[in-house]
Amino acid sequence: MHLDQLDRRILAELQRDGRITNQALAERVGLSATPCLRRVKLLEAAGIIKGYVAMVDQKAVDLPVSVFISIKLERQREEELDRFAGAVARWPEVMECYLMTGQRDYLLRVVCADLPAYEQFLKDKLTRLDGVASIESSFALAQVKHTNVLPIA
């Protein structure tokens, strides 16, 4: 699907406020309500809009610790990569996981309540995976920036 300027403005507005009414969205982007809703539905059907979520403050729900974990696997064969990715996908503590280039194979962002909770995650899950050669953890001291808004406008 080719995105024109109206589509991009719609996406920019929805990224800022996913709960905006269709009428308000239409007014902000300069369309009437019906064509605006049609475009939103097309963006959803094309998979450009993946869904709508509430952004929850991790500290407010007692998960103040963010840990960035670099993982090196023993081998980088497809089956080992798939096995690791499948395991990580089942763990709710893992907020993000990236297959990387360079010295490490994966980079994870994990959230937890405190150091003992992270230790439990490490012992019960990460270290029990076959094929993990090394694990390096870095604890975030402060979050300087976080956004889900892509610079598409």
Results as ranks from 00 to 15, higher is better:
111 V>P: 00
104 R>E: 11
58 Q>Y: 12
123 K>W: 06
82 D>R: 14
112 C>K: 00
69 I>N: 03
25 L>V: 06
81 L>I: 15
97 C>D: 06
44 E>T: 10
58 Q>I: 13
54 A>Y: 13
18 G>T: 06
77 R>K: 14
18 G>S: 08
59 K>Q: 12
102 G>S: 09
65 V>T: 11
114 D>S: 13
33 A>P: 02
77 R>N: 13
55 M>A: 15
95 M>P: 00
99 L>T: 10
122 L>W: 04
50 K>S: 15
40 V>L: 02
83 R>N: 12
106 Y>V: 03
66 S>C: 09
112 C>F: 01
57 D>Y: 03
62 D>C: 06
82 D>T: 14
48 I>S: 05
16 R>T: 09
56 V>M: 07
29 V>L: 03
19 R>E: 11
22 N>T: 15
56 V>K: 07
26 A>Y: 00
63 L>Y: 05
87 A>K: 06
135 I>K: 02
31 L>P: 05
23 Q>Y: 09
92 P>Y: 05
51 G>N: 07
134 S>F: 04
26 A>T: 02
88 V>K: 00
108 L>M: 04
65 V>K: 08
82 D>N: 15
40 V>C: 07
34 T>V: 15
60 A>C: 05
72 K>P: 03
24 A>F: 00
126 L>R: 01
37 L>W: 05
39 R>T: 07
30 G>Q: 03
103 Q>H: 12
27 E>M: 08
96 E>Y: 09
120 Q>K: 13
72 K>D: 13
70 S>P: 02
78 E>G: 14
92 P>A: 11
76 Q>H: 12
35 P>D: 04
132 V>Q: 04
126 L>I: 02
134 S>T: 11
40 V>R: 02
16 R>M: 09
74 E>R: 11
55 M>G: 12
80 E>K: 08
18 G>H: 03
89 A>E: 11
98 Y>R: 10
60 A>I: 04
113 A>R: 10
18 G>F: 01
89 A>H: 11
91 W>I: 10
31 L>C: 08
29 V>Y: 00
112 C>I: 01
128 R>E: 12
44 E>D: 07
25 L>Y: 00
32 S>G: 13
104 R>Q: 12
16 R>S: 14
130 D>L: 10
77 R>W: 05
117 A>N: 06
67 V>Q: 07
79 E>Y: 08
87 A>T: 12
34 T>S: 15
29 V>S: 04
